[in-house]
Design a protein around this nucleic acid. Structure first.
Length: 198
DNA sequence: CGAATGATATACT
DNA sequence: GTATATCATTCGA
């Protein structure tokens, strides 16, 4: 809490309106700090996964397994899932205990620790798409799927409000990506994208 | 457009 | 316990 940034606390993560919460996360700063390295990025793209009523969610219909267990925890934990064998996808667990809502962070822009990110990505220079896409984002921030269950109130992974305001006009709402298997729920407008950072 | 790549869920023996 | 299908993706042709 050294900067003007205000760390988001339990009262934010336990909000029950996961779709509006996803929108509220735009412009927030995702911070990681481990291995003596710190990275921060401004969130520009999110998707809501509305638990048991959402076919795209891993917890659809009340499925509860060792993997999805974290989603049933109280809001404010990290749910990081290994997809396609290569990419870790970073989600924020929201809502109260036993309600498996989550927000997938799909995109961000680097704020601090760009060199560390490039090193993790094995790239020599920044590209405009460095953090666009959940797989790349997790890799650049050092978020491995073994971090699942980490508290976002701790000192390794957390989010801050730096007072960045995203005008409503700059936000695009679209259907989610890569979930064609979800049937009609794939068309739900649960994805929020910031067109341009101000 | 299609391959890479491995944990997980589900349905079996 | 073992087998197989599946996946909230990315990169390169």
């Amino acid at each position: 809490m050294a900067t003007s940034g205000k760390k988001l606390d339990t009262s934010f993560y336990t909000r029950t309106d996961v779709v509006r919460l996803s929108r509220a996360l735009l412009g927030k700063v995702l911070c990681t700090h481990f291995d003596g390295k710190r990275t921060e990025a401004v969130i520009t793209e999110t998707e809501a996964y509305a638990g048991v009523n959402d076919k795209a969610s891993h917890a659809y219909g009340g499925r509860r397994t060792s993997r999805t267990e974290v989603m049933y925890w109280e809001g404010g934990h990290a749910y990081i899932y290994l997809c396609y064998g290569m990419y870790s996808l970073f989600n924020v667990v929201t809502n109260v205990k036993d309600v498996p809502h989550a927000v997938l962070i799909r995109g961000a822009v680097p704020l601090t620790g760009l060199e560390v990110m490039l090193e993790r990505m094995k790239k020599s220079k920044a590209t405009p798409n460095l953090l666009t896409g959940p797989g790349k984002l997790s890799k650049a921030l050092g978020l491995h799927y073994s971090f699942t269950g980490v508290s976002l109130l701790g000192d390794r992974v957390w989010m801050e409000d730096r007072g960045i305001k995203i005008p409503a006009k700059a936000i695009a709402v679209t259907p989610r990506i890569g979930i064609d298997y979800a049937g009609e729920d794939a068309a739900l407008p649960y994805r929020f994208v910031v067109a341009k950072i101000t």
